[in-house]
Amino acid sequence: MTGDGYRDRWVECGERGLRIRGYYFPWGTKAIPYGRIKGVRRVDMDVFSGRGRIWGTSNPRYWFHLDPRRPSKTSGLVLDVGGYVHPFITPDDPAAVEAAIRAHTARTAGGGA
């Protein structure tokens, strides 16, 4: 991670927005401008709330990007982008991604860093 940015195999926080690799079938990337992110919420995962989900969903309100290492992770982030479906991401460092998103969305809303 550098500055307000972040990057791992599946999640990247850049200057303009968040990029989620492996979001669309078969390997498509979802780009979300920071201005579309209305909220971010950290979620503890267990076998019934995401750890067993490698890709896709069993609950139409949440969409999990591809992450073969998700079963070994304990927390993820749910993004509110103003729609019915909320992207559920599991970066390697959820705290760093949450901080980067909050820093960028504060700037987008005019709140400063």
Score class of each variant (00 low, 15 high):
Arg7Glu: 14
Phe88Ser: 04
Lys38Gln: 14
Arg51Cys: 09
Phe48Val: 11
Phe48Cys: 07
Pro60Val: 09
Ala109Trp: 03
Trp63Leu: 10
Phe64His: 15
Val11Thr: 11
Ala109Glu: 12
Ala100Ile: 07
Thr74Tyr: 12
Gly56Pro: 09
Pro94His: 08
Asp92Thr: 11
Arg69Gln: 13
Gly22Phe: 05
Ile54Asp: 00
Pro94Leu: 06
Pro87Leu: 00
Ile20Gln: 02
Pro71Ser: 01
Val78Glu: 11
Val47Phe: 12
Leu66Val: 03
Met45His: 06
Ala113Phe: 07
Arg61Asp: 11
Val85Ile: 15
Glu12Leu: 05
Tyr84Glu: 08
Ile32Val: 15
Asp67Ala: 06
Arg36Glu: 13
Arg41Leu: 09
Arg7Phe: 05
Lys38Ala: 14
Thr57Gln: 12
Arg102Ile: 10
His104Asn: 08
Pro33Trp: 08
Tyr24His: 14
Ala100Gly: 05
Asp93Cys: 05
Pro60Ala: 12
Glu12Val: 05
Thr57Arg: 10
Asp44Ile: 13
Leu18Gly: 01
Phe64Asp: 04
Ser75Glu: 15
Pro87Ala: 01
Leu18Phe: 02
Ile37Ser: 00
Thr105Trp: 01
Thr108Leu: 06
Arg21Ile: 05
Ala106Trp: 00
Trp27Cys: 07
Pro94Lys: 08
His86Leu: 03
Trp27Asn: 10
Gly5Lys: 12
Phe64Ser: 11
Val47Asp: 14
Ser58Cys: 09
Gly14Thr: 10
Met45Phe: 11
Gly3Asn: 15
Cys13Asn: 01
Gly112Trp: 05
Val43Tyr: 08
Asp44Glu: 14
Leu18Thr: 02
Thr2Leu: 14
Tyr6Phe: 10
Leu79Thr: 00
Arg16Thr: 11
Thr29Trp: 07
Asp92Ala: 12
Arg107His: 09
Trp63Pro: 01
Tyr23Asn: 02
Arg102Gly: 03
Leu66Gln: 07
Asp67Asn: 15
Lys73Gly: 03
Ala109Phe: 06
Lys30Gly: 00
Val81Ser: 00
Ser75Leu: 00
Pro60Met: 08
Gly3Lys: 13
Ala96Glu: 12
Ala106Asp: 11
Leu77Ala: 03
Gly28Pro: 09
Gly52Ile: 08
Gly35Ser: 15
Val47Arg: 14
Tyr6Asp: 02
Ser75Phe: 00
Thr105Val: 10
Arg21Gly: 13
Val40Met: 07
Val40Pro: 06
Ser72Val: 13
Gly39Asn: 08
Gly52Phe: 04
Arg53Pro: 00
Gly111Trp: 01
Tyr62Gly: 06
Asp4Asn: 14
Arg102Lys: 14
Tyr62Met: 06
Gly52Leu: 13
Thr105Ala: 03
Gly112Ala: 13
Ser58Asn: 09
Gly112Phe: 09
Leu79Arg: 00
His65Glu: 07
Cys13Asp: 00
Pro94Asn: 09
